[in-house]
Simulated assay, not measured.
Amino acid sequence: MFKNLSRGALLAACVAASPSFAQTAAGAPSAPLKAAFVYVTPVGQAGWTYQHEQGRLAMEKALGAAVKSTVVEAVPEGPDSERVMRDLTAQGHGLIFATSFGYLEPALRVAADFPNAKFEHVGGYKTAANLGTYNARFYEGRWLAGYLAGKVSKSGAAGYVAGFPVPEVIQGINAFTLGMQAANPKAQVKVLWLNTWFDPAREREAALSLVHAGADVLTHHSASPAVPQAAEEKGVHLLAFHSDMSRFAPEAQLAAVVANWGGYYTRVAKSVMDKRWKPTPVWGGIKDGMVELAALNPRLPQALREEVLAKQRAIAQGKLNPFAGRLVDQSGHVRLEKGALDDAAIGRMDWFVAGVQGTLPTAAK
């Protein structure tokens, strides 16, 4: 099995091209499915890529010898990702997981040139005959995290370190704010943009700036443990994202919004092997087991833990919708009077709810 390959070592390390799941001989068992995972950052010990890696490992454990997987980490979005995916597919990988938002257009181009391979892109908004998209409804976990933040914050101000102003990030900021305001109607969420997914030094600088501005709770949509480490250092609360960050912030972390990719990766690989795969967009939430508020700090009051978990069950049961009821944006414009936003409106979200302190770049609007 090939894993943790650098871009430079990829061609040298991979075997010659061969069908990934063709019959090896008449009547013989099928060869293992060759699946590849392209990661935008190093795997590390926590964060976005780490969580996808846990999903890959769970897939391998579930499917055993029926699948062999390759990992290529630290692949920048843009031309590098296209070259890596093209090489992997040419070398016989029949299933490619492209695990960063900026991989979509490169993946579409490679998919068009390799119609027999299957591609799965996380967070994408376009599909093709052999490219499907998937994502988790992180905003459901974000609402819960915001509610917990609102319950514990003394200042009523949270700091949010955000990567890029894409709809998924905006959803998370809005849901966190609405959750925090459900616990404290006067709560405010201060946002700082990084314009990168992974830059530990800039993540730390943004976190410290938010604490200096009065935030006593931090959360983030960034890939390293820098924000959790800053929270621990400064003695403020943390709602972690991507994965459990308690090893970096054992005192600060209250809980973590995490994605569980293993079940999905296993189902996709099995569907490719069984020739049942179709490019169906998937957006799984708490009820699907794809996202959860996990790793609640045992020092939280038991009554508060039970209250938050009850709200998590309510979301899973469809009784609590983060984007329901009267929604007002920063300018005071009523975006929703009653009912709930549908998936299309959530998916193209490009506005902030009242209570968010920060601006959206023009390109995001």
Rank of each mutant, 00 (worst) to 15 (best):
L5D: 00
S6E: 03
S6G: 10
G8I: 07
A13I: 03
A16K: 05
S18H: 00
P19V: 08
S20M: 06
T24N: 07
A28I: 00
P29A: 07
K34Q: 05
K34C: 08
K34H: 11
V38G: 08
Y39Q: 11
Y39A: 12
T41R: 01
V43R: 13
G44W: 04
Q45G: 14
G47Y: 01
G47A: 10
G47T: 05
T49G: 10
E60C: 09
K61H: 10
G78Q: 08
S81D: 06
G92R: 00
G92A: 02
H93C: 01
H93T: 01
G94E: 04
A98C: 08
S100Q: 01
Y103E: 01
P106S: 10
R109K: 15
N116W: 13
A117G: 11
F119H: 08
E120L: 15
G124S: 14
T127Q: 10
T127G: 10
N130V: 11
N130A: 14
L131W: 13
L131E: 14
G132D: 03
T133P: 03
T133Q: 11
T133E: 09
Y134D: 05
G146H: 03
Y147N: 08
K151Q: 13
S155P: 01
F164R: 10
P165G: 06
E168V: 09
G172I: 15
L178I: 13
P185L: 05
K186F: 09
Q188D: 04
Q188W: 07
V191I: 07
L192V: 14
L194T: 09
N195R: 14
N195G: 02
P200Q: 12
A201R: 13
E203C: 04
V211T: 04
A215R: 11
S224R: 00
Q229G: 09
A230N: 06
A231C: 10
E233P: 00
H237D: 07
L238P: 02
L238M: 14
L238F: 03
L238D: 05
L239S: 09
D244L: 05
M245I: 06
M245F: 09
A249H: 06
Q253F: 01
A255K: 02
A255E: 04
A256C: 08
A256S: 12
V257R: 04
V258E: 12
A259C: 14
N260T: 15
W261D: 04
W261Q: 04
G262Q: 03
Y264K: 11
V268N: 06
D274E: 15
K275V: 15
P281F: 05
V282M: 03
D288W: 07
P298M: 15
P301K: 11
L309F: 11
Q312A: 12
Q312Y: 13
I315K: 13
Q317H: 14
P322C: 06
F323H: 05
F323R: 01
A324H: 02
V328T: 13
S331D: 15
R335H: 03
E337Y: 10
A344Y: 11
A345D: 14
I346N: 02
M349F: 00
D350G: 05
W351C: 05
V356Q: 03
P361R: 12
A363K: 06
A364F: 05
